[in-house]
Design a protein around this nucleic acid. Structure first.
Lengths: 116, 116
DNA sequence: CTGATTGTGTACTATGTAGTATACATGACA
DNA sequence: TGTCATGTATACTACATAGTACACAATCAG
């Protein structure tokens, strides 16, 4: 599923319960022109900026990291974490590239619970 | 140290041993105009594209991840690793944000040696 | 001392990013 | 049945990115 159609789906689902989730009203709340949001939802323009994606995620109650990923973007806070120690994290990520989800989750838990 | 001055330093060091590391000749080898490389080394322009940084890193035998980081960029291969599983890696990186270098290295080794 | 090489100043450009502004046709609904 | 909200088409824009092209003064090498 593309970025645009995912957004459209998410919005329409909410709209079924809450009429304030029309394209125009969402656009108004997140601070963009309706015409622009329309084009976004039909993939007629590239996905918007990180800031706009975040406002959209908040309004639609969606995971910002997921929405950003669908837009082909990595959250800027993750970028700056990597940029602090680029070689270390480069190694780590390349190691984990082909690991299973389960394996990564195990690492996450280990780090969270471990006594470093 | 800034991106530009780091490059200049690295190049001049090499040049002491190898006269083919003049600004002009490096520029020629990596495929940019000398005037542009000159501006890069004096931080008169923002750092070049990822592709150009990689060619520069190769020519100067420097670590591309480090050079990219100094340019404020995250390697596109790391990005695509994250984009495969954005939420998982987002959790992991945020967990490791304040971990010690030692702790991260331990994780790297664990993943490398562990039987997943 | 001269010819090549070096680094740099200045001007310009193409493409991408991230949108706005206005107008319009359609459908809901009171 | 008029008007109000909805989604969309079209045209335009400001700024950033990633450079090129050319000229010029200094310097090094034979």
């Amino acid at each position: 599923m593309t970025y645009g159609s995912y957004i459209r789906n998410a919005r329409e689902r909410r709209r079924a319960r809450d009429r304030t989730y029309s394209l125009r009203q969402v656009a108004l709340r997140i601070g963009v022109e309706p015409a622009y949001l329309s084009k976004i939802e039909r993939d007629q323009v590239p996905p918007p900026s990180e800031a706009t994606i975040r406002r959209l995620a908040r309004d639609l109650d969606e995971d910002p990291d997921l929405l950003l990923a669908m837009a082909g973007k990595v959250s800027s806070d993750l970028k700056s974490i990597i940029l602090q120690r680029p070689q270390l994290f480069a190694d780590l990520l390349r190691q984990l590239k082909d690991a299973s989800d389960h394996a990564i989750l195990t690492v996450v838990r280990e780090v969270r619970d471990g006594d470093w």
